[in-house]
Simulated scan of single mutants.
Amino acid sequence: MPINDLIQHDSSGGQDCVCGPTEQPVKGEDGSVRWMVVHHSLDGREQAERPHAQ
Protein backbone atom coordinates (compact mmCIF):
# COMPACT_ATOMS: atom_id res chain seq x y z
CA MET A 1 0.00 0.00 0.00
CA PRO A 2 1.51 3.37 -0.95
CA ILE A 3 2.66 5.53 1.96
CA ASN A 4 1.91 9.29 1.96
CA ASP A 5 -0.21 9.07 -1.18
CA LEU A 6 -2.75 11.66 -2.31
CA ILE A 7 -5.58 9.61 -0.74
CA GLN A 8 -6.15 7.38 2.27
CA HIS A 9 -6.32 3.82 0.95
CA ASP A 10 -8.97 1.38 2.17
CA SER A 11 -6.97 -1.25 4.05
CA SER A 12 -9.96 -3.40 5.05
CA GLY A 13 -8.60 -6.23 2.91
CA GLY A 14 -11.04 -6.04 0.02
CA GLN A 15 -10.81 -4.49 -3.40
CA ASP A 16 -13.10 -1.54 -2.66
CA CYS A 17 -10.32 1.07 -2.62
CA VAL A 18 -10.55 3.94 -5.12
CA CYS A 19 -7.05 3.10 -6.47
CA GLY A 20 -8.32 -0.09 -8.12
CA PRO A 21 -6.14 -2.61 -6.30
CA THR A 22 -5.24 -5.87 -7.99
CA GLU A 23 -4.52 -9.33 -6.61
CA GLN A 24 -1.26 -11.16 -7.29
CA PRO A 25 -0.36 -14.73 -6.38
CA VAL A 26 2.61 -15.11 -4.03
CA LYS A 27 4.24 -18.53 -3.78
CA GLY A 28 5.50 -19.54 -0.34
CA GLU A 29 8.66 -21.53 0.35
CA ASP A 30 6.47 -24.54 1.12
CA GLY A 31 4.85 -24.36 -2.32
CA SER A 32 1.60 -22.86 -1.09
CA VAL A 33 0.08 -19.91 -2.95
CA ARG A 34 -1.46 -16.89 -1.24
CA TRP A 35 -3.11 -13.87 -2.80
CA MET A 36 -1.73 -10.40 -2.07
CA VAL A 37 -3.80 -7.25 -2.66
CA VAL A 38 -1.63 -4.58 -4.35
CA HIS A 39 -2.73 -0.96 -4.06
CA HIS A 40 -1.68 1.61 -6.66
CA SER A 41 -0.59 5.16 -5.92
CA LEU A 42 -2.54 8.10 -7.26
CA ASP A 43 0.50 10.39 -7.28
CA GLY A 44 2.17 8.48 -10.14
CA ARG A 45 5.25 7.30 -8.24
CA GLU A 46 5.22 3.97 -10.12
CA GLN A 47 6.20 5.85 -13.28
CA ALA A 48 9.52 6.85 -11.66
CA GLU A 49 10.26 3.50 -9.99
CA ARG A 50 12.23 0.83 -11.79
CA PRO A 51 10.95 -2.75 -11.65
CA HIS A 52 12.78 -5.07 -9.24
CA ALA A 53 14.82 -7.89 -10.72
CA GLN A 54 13.38 -11.31 -9.96
Rank of each mutant, 00 (worst) to 15 (best):
V33A: 04
T22V: 15
E29V: 04
S11D: 04
K27T: 14
E49H: 08
I3F: 13
G28T: 03
H40R: 00
E29D: 09
D5H: 07
Q47L: 15
P51L: 10
S41V: 02
S11K: 14
D16C: 11
D10Y: 01
H39S: 03
D10H: 03
E23T: 15
C19V: 04
G44H: 07
E46K: 02
G28V: 00
G13R: 11
A48W: 15
L42G: 14
L42I: 00
S32M: 05
D16M: 12
D16G: 14
W35C: 06
M1D: 07
Q24D: 08
R45N: 04
T22A: 07
I7E: 03
L6G: 02
V37M: 06
L6Q: 05
C19W: 00
T22H: 05
C17D: 12
G31I: 00
V38K: 13
L6I: 15
C19D: 03
C17S: 03
D16P: 02
W35E: 09
R50T: 06
S12K: 11
H39I: 01
G14A: 14
G13N: 07
R45M: 05
V26F: 15
K27Q: 13
G44D: 09
E49C: 09
H39C: 02
Q54S: 03
Q8S: 11
L42E: 11
N4T: 09
D43A: 09
A48N: 10
D30M: 01
H39Y: 08
S12P: 05
S41I: 01
Q8P: 02
P51Y: 09
H39M: 04
V26D: 02
L6M: 06
C19I: 02
P25Y: 08
V26W: 15
H39K: 02
W35T: 14
Q8Y: 08
V33P: 03
S12G: 14
R45S: 10
K27M: 10
